[in-house]
Amino acid sequence: MALEMRNVRFGYGNVPLFSDLNLTIEPDERVALIAPSGTGKTTLCRLLAGYERPQAGTVTVGGQHLRKKGACPVQLIGQHPEQTLDPLMRMEDSLREAGEPDGALLDALGIQGRWHSRYPHELSGGELQRFCIARALLVSPHYVIADEITTMLDAVTQAALWEFLLDDQRRKGWGMAFVSHSEALTKRIATRAIDVEALICS
């Protein structure tokens, strides 16, 4: 069930960003995507998770195209949890959109019971990000794309969330691609690193 990009072309406007991009991520991998800011890491993440459609080429999981209907097998967790949660929805309802909440998962993420009835603006960024991670994992994805998910969090929370993700990944065997500007984090987590700068067209 590899996540594969074949001959992908993509760009904004008439300027091509990727042309003929090939990339494969295996289920047990944790791939670090490395490049300076503004290179196109987030675009690559969005392509991998089906948020952007390639102008040519394919993105497949186990040979299957990413479905438009139903839960996507590749889940993207972003940098701004407050933008990916409906501000008018209580956390429990946002969570339920991914399926019935799993108590063990929520406990492992340190999500407290009293947070459930709150609105997003009543929680901190770290608390919201926990919900976003829980939500992404509730649909049992084959791949998780983590786009700087802990950049805005303090060191303790960062460590706790990555600890959890590594544990969950080992147990359930999903693959991961992640973006981080922290070299230490990359060294600690990645099984392989990809230089995104080498992938884009100059």
Partner: peptide, 25 residues
């Protein structure tokens, strides 16, 4: 809004998105 795109990726149907997100907004 980004949260509409995320809801779609989590498997919410168009009808559900309209009823749960757009109407309350």
């Amino acid at each position: 809004s980004p949260y509409i795109a995320v809801a779609g990726k989590l498997g919410a149907s168009r009808l559900r998105i309209a009823a749960k997100h757009i109407v309350p907004f």
